[in-house]
């Protein structure tokens, strides 16, 4: 680690940078969705299933809480996000970890001119894990690299940084798909439609990226012309021989797909005129349900707007609320993996 300087590290490609955050098949820090490969994903899914099953009984919950009671996590959430915050806090508490949080940097020494790096270095001294959500692009990876070079080698989990990365959201999306298809032959060879703001929606981007780990998966990108999936992801798909098509109307494909991943328009990034979405061609309405396959699951990272009618919520194929629950279990699994208590859970 110490043989490479921060500048040298940052000059590397993402795939090379990933190598610095893994040791003996165990993540030292989670910064990029690209860090997940198929074996790691399968391990984490198995672990999340085990955590979930153990949580069914009071005995199991007490066992889980006795795993990491001596560890402390800091939730450094300077960009507002209540649900990701609560999901991570719950994940820590499931494993018995205690948590502290920094949500408003204006109450810390940062206002006295201290750099955020120094502040974080101090904060990390009190904790064994930093879970970080903030808006500055590139900050999380820089901190992850540096913290591993400081004494204590404290790990970071990226809980969303700016517009580029939100790896645990990608992880929970994939875990949800994995669970949906567990009884029907798995995720391989399934046809998945991603709908909405594919250009700026980092969840759709990461999901499309990670789906190259599943042979035979076919993708359909349905988006307004201005918000189509970006070229970098499409190049990655071509490189990995993952078939995809693009459309601006979902209706022709409803009967053939195995899952639909809906996203909202991210118009908070729009400057000036807001790009809008034609919900008649890209929205899901109750009348579409009868066209869908009996196992065509509907996902959404939430929050939603008008892209999914609320009348759909009661259909068993609407799994967006389960998706949020899955997030808590897979985050607990991720932390258990990073702190090497995965074997205890699986053997219990």
């Amino acid at each position: 680690m110490s043989t490479v300087s921060l500048d040298e590290f940052l000059a590397l490609r993402v795939s090379q940078r990933c190598q610095y955050f893994i040791e003996n098949n165990r993540l030292l820090a989670l910064v990029y969705a690209q860090q997940f490969d198929r074996p790691l994903l399968e391990d984490l899914f198995r672990l999340a299933d085990a955590v979930r099953t153990l949580s069914h009984t009071s005995q199991g919950r007490l066992f889980l809480r006795a795993l990491l009671p001596d560890r402390r996590a800091m939730l450094y959430f300077t960009q507002p996000s209540t649900r990701t915050f609560l999901s991570f806090a719950a994940a820590c508490h499931i494993l018995g970890m205690s948590t502290a949080d920094v949500r408003d940097p204006s109450t810390s020494s940062e206002v006295k001119g201290e750099t955020r790096q120094d502040a974080l270095r101090i904060f990390s001294i009190y904790h064994d894990l930093v879970i970080m959500r903030q808006s500055e692009a590139g900050f999380c990876e820089k901190m992850a690299f540096q913290m591993l070079s400081w004494p204590g080698r404290k790990p970071i989990i990226n809980a969303g940084s700016g517009t580029d990365q939100h790896p645990t959201q990608a992880l929970l999306d994939l875990y949800t798909l994995h669970r949906c298809f567990a009884d029907v032959g798995g995720l391989d060879h399934k046809k998945i439609m991603l709908v909405g703001d594919l250009k700026r929606g980092r969840t759709a981007r990461s999901l499309a990226y990670l789906l190259t780990n599943y042979p035979g998966v076919e993708l359909i990108f349905a988006a307004p012309d201005d918000l189509a999936m970006a070229e970098d992801i499409k190049a990655h798909l071509r490189q990995n021989s993952t078939a995809f098509i693009e459309t601006s109307d979902i209706h022709a494909h409803l009967a053939e797909v195995d899952a639909i991943y809906m996203t909202r328009i991210q118009d908070e990034w729009d400057q000036g005129a807001k790009i809008s979405m034609d919900y008649s061609r890209l929205g899901l309405q109750a009348q579409h349900l009868k066209t869908l396959k009996p196992h065509c699951y509907i996902l959404h990272p939430l929050p939603r707007r008008r892209e999914i009618q609320t009348a759909i919520d009661s259909d068993p194929r609407a799994v967006y609320f389960d998706q949020a629950e899955n997030g808590m279990w897979i985050r607990a699994a991720l932390i258990a993996h990073m702190f090497a208590v995965d074997k205890d859970i699986l053997d219990h």
């Binding site: 009884d183 029907v184 032959g185 060879h189 195995d258 396959k293 009996p294 196992h295 065509c296």
Partner: peptide, 15 residues
Amino acid sequence: YITELIVPGLLTWPQ
């Protein structure tokens, strides 16, 4: 049956 009917989503498990 599972490979031809369940995996492609033609039938649900209860069906």
